[in-house]
Each structure stands twice: as structure tokens, then as C-alpha cells.
Write a protein that binds this DNA or RNA. Structure first.
Lengths: 204, 204, 204, 204
DNA sequence: CATGAATGAGTATTCATTCAT
DNA sequence: TATGAATGAATACTCATTCAT
């Protein structure tokens, strides 16, 4: 019709993939992985059902991608903090705040990672375990270094400490995600959690 | 047809309900809630598909029952410990050991409770939240009493501490349930976890 | 326990069969044949599910029995009227009133016969058609005799008239069964219906 | 893939809905509503099972649609006749002939409407009643106008007459649908039925 | 690349019927 | 006879995935 229009470009969206992921995070968080229909993701992303299969192998693949990219981003940042030159106590504190802080800005991603991934035992065992171990390792390394350097008590297994810390953060997020989602409450919880762990770790 | 069939065995099993629950824990742990077919539970329990519906409203109800009865049993024991006359530190320590110890005997149940229940957002929100809150309350009460009595530092929110403790135990169980399942490792983790939290809580 | 009680006879009920039929009429009328569970009939009859199978081959057999016994009773009475010595016009009038009157006292049976039997095409074709034909014949005979005797016009096919009359009564019953079920309304409808058909049939 | 396939024929059939309805009428008439499997309808229509659910809410909806569209069409035509300027007697006569004539072309539809709809008490009460009342009203209006104008006797309740007429036609159709289905017989029955009612209604 | 109509495999649940007691 | 717990065949409906356009 418009003969001279430079380029029709009815649909600009070269960002379909990103839009699908973003939409998926939203609906997964709201309804859970199994209760979410592919068509719902498509609708929320403003694409056709079939389009999703141009970017992802299947529904599982969407969840896995969200998890992988999300945890990858988290791991990158965590590693930076973990390997910084700051005092060990600050690193621990920042690790906690970082995760909770990061999530505060991305509540849906938080719910998807903490809740949804457990929804598929298969996915959990296949994908989450290895990444989970990397996560544990990052924290455990900080603890171990702190022990060797003399800041932290030496009688605790660093990996056990790391698991406890992960669990504590996960539980706080879970409560927060299932509940009101008040940012202030989250921040306060972060402070208390950090204080609890740091005192628990401190060498005397 | 089989003329000499050894015994007609229309098994008058009086324990059908228990057998179904036991079978369900096993297959849920193995395959996850959604991937488990009702017929698989029936087969594992040695009953007909329809029999399950004589004892449970539906598939959801089976999972919820497992969760509720498991948590209920735990809560009863936890309350005893929480309200005992022992020093507060001992109570915390015993709460941790109790949970991990209880689960040690029922690895599949541990997986169902820590992993499977999160598979249905609806179930999680509907059933888990209230029981979870009761659980949190029991622990939080111990912390609060300890604070008032002067054993624990007063600057930490008891409910945040309780949530952290729950998360830590949950994470330890999760790792254990998904992994090797070595009882010794579990016991050692319990000791370290307890030490970490008690030091973190101690008033100085 | 009661050692000397003459005869325990916890359940006198030698009338189980009748009680089952009566209960079945009630629940079939309320919910329809397909929506009625065998267990509902049993409950309404105050017997165990399995007991029904001591008196009836299966669920279909219960409906068929109701229909057969009901229509049989109706046919017997109709034949009496049809073969009486009364004026033909009176016979027609009484046939109408009889059916509607009979039903008025047995509203549930009316609904079962007019509505439920159509619920199983198989049953309808297999059982109802022959009995229906007998019914048509009884009325058609009265019409035919009236024609030959000179009371009714001769240009109408007696079987067509009989079908029309059956249909009219059925429609009145249907409306009545689906609606309020006011006996007075039914009686008035019977009068009008009779008048309409008698005038339509009268030789001039 | 198949290079020479004559026509890929992912049949872009634009008439799926109509084909499903047509197929449903056929199988409902043959086996009855309850005995008909959704998959049978699908097979008869040459579509996949799931396709039916793109056009209808559920199996009930298919039956209701058949009924509604059939009755709707009938009502439209009936109203035209009822409101025409013809003598009242002709209108009645044409109403009868129209219905029987319409059905003559669609014996299966006749059976579905007269027999199948009664198979579900729920559907009958929910859908049939209102449309049935409209139908009754159309006929009753003709009768009433004829009474007021002086053609018909005034001592009959128009709605009772209408119900009788409906029943008579229904019974004729039922016999016809369940029996041979001889068109000539149907036409003759229509004439006799009309004559019976007109004489019955005539003012003298 | 994008679409969305069509597909059809897959499953929880129901309920008539049986049979050990 | 009577029971009612147990059975398991049977089926409507959903929804991830495909592919002709």
C-alpha cells in the first residue's frame, strides 16, 4: 500500500528470543512450570505459539535456558566479589546482599530459579546439580580462604557452610516470593542473615 | 484359565492406605510429582488404579498427605524439644539433629518434601505455607525465649533466624537426597551447621 | 447379644426388589438414567450396591423393568377402559384422564417413562417400540371401533390419531414433569386435550 | 519431502465446523448421545479428536448446537407462517406440514432432536425448555389470534393446544425416525394430523 | 522468519460389576 | 442372601508440537 515507505518493518522485534525468555520468566513465576502453557508464554511475549520453537527446542529448553543464563549471570558476579581483595567478611556480606539485592530487582527470576527449577526433578538433577555445585564452590572458596588467612574459624567444613548459606538465602527468597514481596523486609532480612553467618564464622 | 493358580489372593490387605503412601513416596522421589502416573503408584503399591481413589481424593491429595503427615510428625517432635527445659543452645542443636536424623531414615521422604512439593505452585502456596509458618514459629519461639533469657543476642529477628535455619537444613537435605546419601556425611553436616548457628546466635 | 430375642431380623425387607425399583424411579426421575449411579440407587433403597445385582442383571435391566412393569400396568388399565361398554367418546376421555391421572399420583414414574426411556436409544428401539405399538393399538382400536360404529369420522387413520393422542399426552406430561408439577394445571390440561381430540374426531 | 505428492492436503477445510456437526448428527442418531464417543464423531468428520474442541466447548456443546441451530431455523420459518396474512386454518396446516416436511429431509436430525436431547435431563432442562417455550408461544399465538378473530373455539387454552400439537408432531416424527422412514407415510400422517386438529379447533 | 490451525498421543478419574467374606 | 471393598476397562479432554501457508 504505502509505496514509498522505506521499509515496512511491521514487526521490528529482532529481540524475539529475549522477549520470549522475559515472558516465560513472568508466567513461570506466576503459575509454575507445569501449569504454564506454551501458548501462554507466546501470548505474553506477543508471538505465535510456533515461533517459540524457532528459538527453543521445547518447553523444557525454555526453563533450562532461563536457569542457565540466570545462574550464569549470578555466578559471574559472585566470582568477581569472591575474588576481590576486600576483607573476607565483606565478601560474605556482599555475596548475600548481592543475591538478595539482585533478586529484589528481578523478583520473577528469583522465583523461577528458587522454586520452578525444582519442579522438574529431571531438570534439577541434570542441569541444576552441576551449576549448584559451582555456586557452592564459589562460596566455599571464600570461606576456605578466610579460614586459611585466619579470619574464620577453621573447624567448619567450608562446603557445609556454603550449603547453609545457600539454603538460608533460598529460604528468605522463597518466603519473600510467596508472600508480600516487600523490598524493605528483604533488605532487613539480608542484614540479619549476614550478621548471623559472620558471627557464626568469626574466629575468636 | 490358570487351573492351578496357587492362591486366588483377593488380598484383604488392611493396610492399603499405608501401602499407597509408601509406594507414592518411592515413585515421587524417583520421577517427581508430575512425571509420576497414578497407575505407577498403584502398581508399586500392588493395588488397582481405582483403589487409590478410595483413600485419596486425587493425585494432589496423595502428595499433600505425604507432606502433611511428614511435617506433622516433625512438628510434634520439634515442639517437644522446643518446649523442653534444656538450655536454649541444646534445644537448637537438637532441633537440627532431629530433623536431619529423622530424614536420614527416610531419604525418599526427604526428597519428596524438599523437592516434590515445590513442583506445584498451587500446592505449595495452599498447603506448604501454613505448615511452613508453624514450623518457623516453633523455631522462632526458641530463639525469642533465648534472647529474652539472655543466651542469644537480641539484635536478630527471630523469624529471620528461623528461616535461615530452615533453609540451611533444607539445603543440606537437598544435597544429600540428590547425592550419595551417606549417613555419616549427614551427621557431620548437622554438627557443623549447629555450631555455625549457635556461634552466630551467642550473646557476648 | 440379645440372647432371647425371638428373631433378630435386623433386616426384614423381603421386598428388596420392590424397594430397589421404587428408589430407582425416584433417582432416575431426578437425575436421568445416565447420570444416575448404581450406588445412588442402592443408597436410596437402603441396600448394598451388590444387592442390586441379585435382583437385576445390570443397570439397564433396572430401567427396562421399570418401563415394562409400568407400561404393563398402564396397558392393563387402558385395555379395560378401551373394551368397556361406554360410549366411545367417554372411553377416549377416560383414556386421557386415566393416563394423566395415573401419572399425577406417580409423577416420578411419569418422568421415567416419558423422559428416561428415550435416554438409551438401544433400549428405546429394543424394548419401547414394541410396547409403544401395543399402546398405539389399544387407542387405535377404540378409534376404529368408533368409526365403524358411526361415532367418529371415518377419514382419519386410527393409528395416526392414536399417535397424535400419545404425543399430546406425552408433551403435557413432559411440560408438567419439567415444570412446577401443579396437579390442578394437569387436570385442566387433560380436559382441554380431551375436548380438542373429541371435537376433532366427531362425525358430523 | 515427498516431492511428487499430488497435493500435500493438510486439508485447509474451511468447513470443519459444519462437517463436525453433520458427522455428529449422523452418529448421535445411530448410537445415541451417551453411547457416542467423541473420537467417533471426529473420525466420521475426518478430523482429529482435538479439532472438535477448537469449535465446540465439549461434547454437550455439540449436541446443544445441533439442537439450537435446528430449532432456530425451524422457529424462523414458523414465525413467518404464523405471522402471515393467511387464514388461521391454513397457518396451522402449514405449520404442521412445514415441520414434518423439514424433517423429512433430515431424518437423522429429527431423531437427534426428538430422541437424543432427552438423553440428558440436564441439557433438556437447561436448553430445551426456553426454546420449547418459544416454540409453544408461536403456535399459541396463532391459536389465540384465531380465537379472537372468531375462527377457533374460545374454550381451549391456546398453550395447551400448542403443547398437544407439538406432542402430536413429535410422536409422528419419533415413530417415523425409529421406523421405516417412508416419506409418503409421513405426508399422509401430516394431512390427518392437521385435519384432526383443525376440526377440533373449529368454532361452530 | 512467522504464523496458528490442526494434530493425536497421553492420563486422571469414574463407576458398573464382581466376589471373598 | 447380603455386603461393600476392590477392581480395571473405558473415555473426554488437554496441550506440546508440527508444518502448510
Amino acid at each position: 500500500m504505502a509505496v514509498h515507505s522505506p521499509a515496512p518493518r511491521r514487526k521490528r522485534a529482532p529481540d524475539k528470543r529475549a522477549r520470549i525468555l522475559k515472558a516465560a520468566i513472568k508466567v513461570f513465576a506466576k503459575n509454575g512450570f507445569y501449569a504454564t502453557r506454551v501458548s501462554e508464554i507466546a501470548k505474553a511475549a506477543g508471538v505465535a505459539d510456533g515461533t517459540i520453537y524457532l528459538y527453543f527446542k521445547n518447553k523444557d529448553d525454555v526453563l533450562v535456558t532461563i536457569f542457565e543464563e540466570g545462574i550464569e549471570r549470578l555466578l559471574t558476579i559472585l566470582r568477581e566479589v569472591a575474588e576481590s581483595e576486600e576483607p573476607f567478611e565483606n565478601r560474605i556480606q556482599r555475596i548475600i546482599e548481592l543475591q538478595l539485592g539482585l533478586m529484589e530487582e528481578q523478583r520473577d527470576l528469583a522465583e523461577v530459579i528458587t522454586v520452578n527449577l525444582r519442579q522438574s526433578s529431571r531438570l534439577l538433577k541434570q542441569y541444576a546439580t552441576p551449576l549448584f555445585m559451582q555456586y557452592i564452590d564459589v562460596i566455599a572458596d571464600v570461606v576456605r580462604d578466610g579460614q586459611e588467612e585466619g579470619t574464620f574459624r577453621k573447624d567448619l567444613n567450608p562446603r557445609v557452610v556454603a550449603r547453609c548459606l545457600f539454603g538460608a538465602i533460598d529460604a528468605i527468597l522463597l518466603t519473600w516470593a510467596l508472600g508480600e514481596g516487600d523490598p524493605a523486609a528483604l533488605r532487613k532480612a539480608a542484614t540479619h542473615c549476614a550478621s548471623l553467618f559472620l558471627e557464626g564464622l568469626r574466629k575468636r
